[in-house]
């Protein structure tokens, strides 16, 4: 292929505009903003590290960091193992698999907003379906899930996991299908039980996929703005407020753009750390995901 030196740059021009104008540019801009006291209306003034110092000293901020981490701690293991179980069940090659797969996948295509609305109704304290079931089972006063500071974050994380399980199930299924059938057959001939097969064959061979899923689920777990917004708006109080929601609140409700930018830097550091982890270990999953 022969071409002028500048032609490749034209080919990547659109992607580069996207990269520099809508990704890297804003990223650096946000970094700069985080050292200012920019409110939405006014003009920015340099305040140095003040925003950061204020947050670090504020117990509410640390509570919110903890909520963000808790959200991931609930979400990631459920995804990691839950979707693996779904995939293994569906990988048995029994009739009806396609139908079940379609049903398990349905929450993935549904918007988070619709998911949040229907689960809010199910988790309603007084006339919600779940509490009706619990009362029927003899639990006198079931919790007020979303209005209870002990439960709201857990419930939101669970619902988000419910929505995302099907997605990771598909990734696992792809990984499982790469395992040669012959290995299972050989093991079965040797008289290995289902559990033994899972432990000795499936698990080791699926580990790279699991690692990949873990990284992806971790990153996914920080994209919790939509579900928090629709289910609790961070409440009661700040009980289910996460960093993503806190950024939104500071920027678009408090109009403290500078502070919001410094919050987004905290989030960036967390996600950046995970990206580095991913990069270091990438060789381990890239083969199975080709």
């Amino acid at each position: 292929m022969r071409y002028k030196w500048y032609l490749p740059y034209l080919f990547i021009l659109l992607a580069m505009v996207g990269l520099f104008v809508f990704r890297l540019g804003p990223l650096f801009f946000a970094g700069g903003m985080s050292f200012t006291d920019w409110s939405m209306f006014g003009s920015p003034g340099w305040v140095g590290l003040e925003n950061y110092i204020e947050f670090v000293k504020d117990p509410t901020f640390w509570k919110i960091v903890w909520h963000t981490i808790s959200f991931s701690l609930i979400f990631v293991p459920i995804i990691l193992f839950g979707s693996l179980i779904l995939a293994v069940l569906l990988n048995q090659g029994i009739p009806g698999t396609t139908t079940f797969r379609a049903m398990y996948f349905a929450p993935v295509v549904t918007s988070t907003v619709a998911v949040g609305i229907v689960w809010r109704w199910i988790f309603g304290a007084d006339v919600g379906m779940l509490n009706f079931l619990l009362r029927t089972l003899g639990i006198e006063s079931p919790p007020s899930w979303l209005s209870d500071r002990q439960f709201s974050l857990v419930v939101v994380a669970l619902v988000f996991a419910w929505k995302r399980l099907g997605y990771y199930m598909i990734i696992y299924l792809a990984g499982l299908q790469d395992i040669p059938r012959t290995m299972y057959e050989a093991a079965r001939i040797d008289g290995a039980g289902a559990l033994a097969i899972f432990r000795k064959i499936t698990l080791p061979l699926i580990t790279p996929t699991m690692f990949f899923v873990m990284i992806m689920a971790l990153v996914d777990s920080f994209k919790n703005f939509d579900i928090v917004y629709t289910m609790t708006r961070g409440g009661p109080g700040t009980a289910s407020t996460t960093l993503a929601y806190y950024i939104y609140q500071h920027a678009f409700e408090l109009f403290q753009m500078g502070q919001a930018a410094s919050l987004s830097m905290f989030l960036l550091v967390i996600v950046g750390g995970i990206s580095v982890l991913n990069f270091v270990y990438k060789s381990r999953w890239v083969n199975t995901q080709g």
């Binding site: 990704r23 804003p26 990223l27 994209k223 703005f225 987004s264 830097m265 989030l267 960036l268």
Partner: peptide, 11 residues
């Protein structure tokens, strides 16, 4: 992997 929330303000 940069979440939208990080760049949404400058955007």
């Amino acid at each position: 992997m940069v979440p939208l929330e990080v760049v949404i303000i400058p955007e």
